[in-house]
Design a protein around this nucleic acid. Structure first.
Length: 318
DNA sequence: ATCGTTGCCTGAGGGC
DNA sequence: TGCCCTCAGGCAACGA
């Protein structure tokens, strides 16, 4: 795939299917695979480049660092590297400061050099002048816009503003990052077994706890529990060592597989270059309530656990 | 310490 | 057609 930064900064390249709506499935959120895919795709447009100017929307709770300080501190900084911790993206800047981004539920990080951009709300369509058909124009949801001396700009767009952006000074730490548990890609059965001891909450709730495993969200929690054969409402403390091993293995497998296929994109997730992830086609339970289990044929059920839609197969999961 | 609840936000979709 | 209502949910803060 062509790195986003190599695509010409022009209308033509953003033309094809640039603006599109959703497909009608329930809202997923960017989880570890989507954030990792975003990281990989936005990296070429960010790393090695020096920020010249920063444009933001008005101050709001989206900004854990006030816009005025963001603009002041980011201007002139060069992006040295881009890391991911769980669902957080961390841009390391020269001088030692770090720009931290969380995509929340509807966050989109992409560059104007992307080959196409699938925007989340239809209102953005109205922002497109006819002569700029297909080319992204920063709108009211575009909370952060990074301009460089030349070449593509980088946008952080978030319709619902559940995402967050903050700037850490040299050596400064963040409770948000500090609280994160082990990255879910490296989850082991032993870690999971230890973390579940003495915990009476549903195993699904525990999987969503970012201080234990960082990166698992609603979709992959449901999918991993399916593959491990564990019902989401089981008390965490009741899982056996063997089940924890199976669950850790399932978590790693679904996350890795999703990264391979470009991340889920049922509706809200949008790759910076607009390409769609295909993992949605490999879902066994998520958003399949009432449909037949692909493995045993029983009807997939939907319940609410930890205030979140939760899907499982009563035939396959015990 | 752990657990459950609340609020932040806005678009989509259903019902009438 | 269009309005009103509900739902979706990551995360931190809060109260029990």
């Amino acid at each position: 795939m062509l790195p986003a930064a190599e695509a010409p900064h022009g209308v033509e390249d953003t033309h094809d299917g640039a603006i599109a709506g959703g497909s009608g499935y329930p809202l997923p959120m960017p989880e570890l695979p989507e954030v990792e895919v975003t990281r990989l795709r936005i990296e070429p447009a960010l790393v090695g480049r020096r920020i010249r100017r920063v444009v933001t929307t008005p101050d709001s709770y989206f900004f854990l660092t006030r816009p005025a300080r963001l603009k002041r501190s980011l201007a002139g900084r060069r992006v040295e590297s881009l890391d991911r911790h769980g669902k957080y993206l961390v841009a390391n800047l020269d001088g030692g400061s770090r720009l931290v981004v969380h995509l929340g539920m509807t966050g989109q990080l992409f560059s104007s050099g992307a080959t196409s951009v699938r925007l989340l709300s239809a209102t953005a369509r109205a922002a497109l002048a006819p002569e700029e058909q297909g080319r992204f124009v920063p709108d009211a949801h575009t909370h952060l816009r990074l301009c460089f001396a030349s070449g593509p700009e980088v946008y952080l767009r978030d319709v619902r503003k559940f995402g967050k952006v903050l700037l850490l000074g040299p050596g400064e730490t963040s409770p948000r990052l500090g609280r994160l548990g082990v990255d879910a890609l490296g989850a082991t059965g032993e870690q999971l077994f230890r973390a579940t001891r003495g915990r009476r909450v549903a195993i699904k709730s525990l999987l969503l706890d970012q201080s234990i495993l960082a990166g698992v969200g609603n979709i992959y929690a449901d999918e991993a529990l399916f593959h491990a054969g564990v019902r989401p409402r089981r008390a965490a403390s009741r899982l056996t060592q063997r089940e924890c091993a199976a669950l850790a293995q399932a978590i790693r497998a679904v996350l890795e597989r999703s990264i391979e296929t470009g991340g889920s994109s049922i509706r809200d997730y949008v790759a910076p270059d607009g390409s769609d992830g295909a993992y949605q086609d490999e879902r066994f339970v998520y958003a399949r309530a009432g449909e037949s289990c692909l493995r045993c044929g029983e009807k997939v059920r939907r319940v609410v656990v930890a205030q979140r839609g939760t899907h499982y197969c009563p035939g396959c999961q015990k």
